[in-house]
Design a protein around this nucleic acid. Structure first.
Lengths: 314, 314
DNA sequence: CTGAAAGCGCTTACAG
DNA sequence: CTGAAAGCGCTTACAG
């Protein structure tokens, strides 16, 4: 019976038996119990998506990309928010070790491969959202990324080409902000300019606004352009600048990173990260890993292309 | 052993045995298998969140509110996107009937109580995100809502008080847009003005922009104010208006509904729905329902307060 | 106080 | 071709 219900083809069952079973199941409104299936088949048919915060507008698009590939392959998506904190990330790993998902797509700001290897050892493939290329590894840990350093470098070149000399970057303490800062710093130095970093804690509007206020309090060498290490930071900076009576881009130019959906509406010049495609690619990678023998392949790093979106804020 | 691992107090187990068990569990890095627990205890410790689309900025805040209450109570959150379509909603129900969640928070645009009653019959409590008060019912189906008709009425009164006479509303085909349209329509008629509805399909920027373009193509009686039945619709309308070279609010005023996070940044006048609190309240309701005897109580409707956010777009 | 045993609802290999 | 049986890893009631 199980056979008929689960497979579309059943050579060993005569058609009439097959239709009879299907009919009865239909009449009873039979739905197989998912927990029992999970236990018996040792497959949860679930992907976990471990991210800092679903309310950061970068992530819903990623989740959607994931779902779009996962659903047709029969996988559900569980969301786990870490708040970008070490304890949140550790809790995510413990939780995954309880066998809640067959595969994981994750953004870790703090944990490194040694701490993540437990998953691979348990046969749970992981796709990390990274900010740079990673060398192939022996474990079932893959990554998807855009070249964050090069993208930030290109944006910095654009700001310089627009005549800016005093360009500040608003950073966050952890996460992809670091690679972005490297790209920015390298280009600034090459051009004979001094990098000007200001770090507030998180990827939040409040952090961006706070950092901008500190920049504006400076006497004399105020920057003429501010590069937010993420769009959310840049939006906070825009708000703070406007509250201070400055006009964008006349008094101060602002650039961001991510191209979240509202960036377009606000005219924010930014780096486009294809979040939907990153999610979809991550899901495809997991689906392949979970096919027979898929766990043997070495861990790969997949690059997608970024794009500089030139809008009115610069 | 199970006893020790699961409870914080174990009167029948001597302390030394208890610590010994805990120590060994620690050393082995033992993590209980979640699917097996689910099956044995007939509890998934999961809440499902069934929504049209996680990329609509209204929903991440709702999800966060849900998680914030669910996590400390031991529940995970699964996201299911229906795309606001009837087949998506039907698939959500079938999926829930496989025993994937202990409780559900959902927005249904199409299904009504008769179709949802299967859940209650299976002992799965449901909290609906509604647009109006619902009478108490015998089933374990609760709801949380703000008074959408009254909120839209109040916004319409505000637009009239600002001197607008030709006020159009951009609607979506299904969902809460209907109650909002009622509130708007009633106030317009009371004031001796004619309601002016324009309906495009979905709650998307594209729909909002398309509707706005149709309004702008009109000869003569163009509206001086446009009320989007949701913020996403209003944002699309703003974009279309700007593309047409109009200035907001001088040439045309725009109002929305929801107060998604970007509304503030864009200066959009809108109705604030406390999405985080709605999610948190829904989760609390489910947690209570899942305590002993909780399923017996009649289905209740919980109201939260809206607020008119007056910003620069009007 | 503690160890062995039953059973949750499936899937899958096996006997008839 | 089809029905009965084992077993996934737990929890919980029960015997010793």
């Amino acid at each position: 019976m199980s056979l008929v219900l689960n497979k579309t083809e059943t050579p060993s069952v005569p058609p009439e038996t097959r239709t009879r079973i299907l009919k009865v199941a239909q009449e009873l409104g039979y739905q197989p119990n998912h927990p029992a299936r999970m236990l018996r088949s040792a497959r949860t048919m679930t992907f976990a998506c471990v991210i800092p915060d679903i309310t950061n507008p970068f992530y819903p698009g990623l989740v959607r990309g994931l779902q779009t590939v996962a659903a047709p392959a029969g996988y559900d998506v569980l969301i786990f928010d870490t708040d970008g904190r070490p304890d949140g990330e550790v809790r995510a790993i413990d939780w995954l070790l309880q066998g809640r998902a067959d595969g994981v797509v994750a953004t870790f700001f703090h944990l490194r491969v040694p701490q993540l290897a437990v998953l691979a050892r348990k046969g749970i493939p992981l796709v990390r959202l990274e900010s740079q290329h990673k060398p192939d590894g022996p474990l079932a840990i893959d990554s998807v990324y855009i070249d964050n350093a090069e993208a930030a470098a290109e944006m910095t070149r654009f700001l310089i080409a627009r005549g800016h000399r005093r360009i500040a970057m608003i950073q966050a303490e952890f996460g992809p902000s670091q690679r972005r800062a490297q790209g920015y710093g390298a280009v600034m130095r090459e051009a004979g300019l001094s990098p000007d970093f200001i770090t507030d804690s998180a990827y939040s509007e409040e952090s961006g606004a706070r950092a901008m206020r500190r920049l504006l309090e400076r006497k004399g060498d105020r920057p003429t352009a501010v590069f937010g290490a993420s769009d959310v930071l840049a939006l906070g900076a825009m708000e703070a600048a406007r509250s201070a009576g400055l006009s964008i881009p006349n008094d101060i130019a602002i650039a961001g990173f991510d191209d979240i959906p509202v960036a377009k509406l606000l005219g924010l010049t930014t780096v486009r990260q294809p979040e939907f495609d990153l999610g979809a690619l991550a899901a495809e990678t997991l689906v392949k890993r979970l096919q027979a023998g898929g766990l043997e392949a070495p861990g790969r790093s997949h690059e997608l292309k970024f794009e500089i979106m030139k809008r009115s804020s610069v």
